[in-house]
Amino acid sequence: MNPAFSVIFLTTLIGAGQGLFLALFAVESGWLGTAPATGAALYVRGDFVALALLIAGLIASFFHLGHPERAWRAVAMWRTSWLSREVIVLPLFMAVVALHGVCHFSGGTSGVVVTGLAGAILCLALFYITAMNYVCIKFLQEWATPLTIVNYTLLGCASGFTLATALAASLEPALVPTLARWALNLTLAAAAARIASLIRNARLRPKSTMQSAIGIQNPRIVQKAQGFMGSSFNTREFFHGKSRQLVQSVKWGFLLLVFVIPAWLLSGSNVENKAAFAFLIQYIGLIAERWYFFAQARHPQNLYYQAAS
């Protein structure tokens, strides 16, 4: 596939926003085993940052559309379409994150509990739904695996917890060691899952072949003409056109930027000064990771577009 930057930014930005919200929810409900935050500042600012990331992701997604003014129509087919479900759940989650921040700001205890729980459920649902957009296309074999769901969730959580650590550094220093440990653990878990998917995808054998594409059982089939001599939607949308070396460098680059460097920064001393940098590095790495995710997927339609003459 030819990676679309609108979708890369959408999935990485909302992933970080979702992870950040889950970190806030984990702190306020005491699941991390720490004392609660001393004031509302971390929650209010955290919700604000999470909302900003979600809005930025939503704006990015509009650049993917030929007719953004008709985007509202995308809520219609929620019974069958994961994309439609995503279009419904994302704004719903954004509204709950905003309410959660307002409740913390105004000190409404029961409001915090309700919006925190609702937000956490919507957040996990959104991870699942976003990933299912890719998992459900069964002939994109690189995507059609439960590992895609695990990766989207863990990568979002890792970047979100790293960002939460950075926010806590100035607002709630007492929480930094615990948040940093969770960010590190999530980064390592994400590394394990992502490497598992890399290994799986390297061993994949495409189910579709030249033989099944045109239905002729001969071991040697060579395309001589694809029906046109210039380009078409089919040659632009499904081929990234980058060299093998570049794709491989992107892979090693994201492994370094998403996992190795942030893990090193988060596990060292003086984390409160390094967490913001760790998030920046990790986020840049996630853009490369998502680019690779799209570039690696081999669409069976490409079998019909092997040669022009």
């Binding site: 993917h64 559309l65 030929g66 296309i137 579709s208 089919n234 669409h299 339609q301 019909y304």
Partner: peptide, 17 residues
């Protein structure tokens, strides 16, 4: 149609343009 291209991704034959 909002031009999101998702249906073209979901067609293995590459017949949507």
């Amino acid at each position: 149609c909002i031009g999101c291209n998702y249906c073209s991704w979901a067609c293995p034959y590459g017949v949507r343009e």
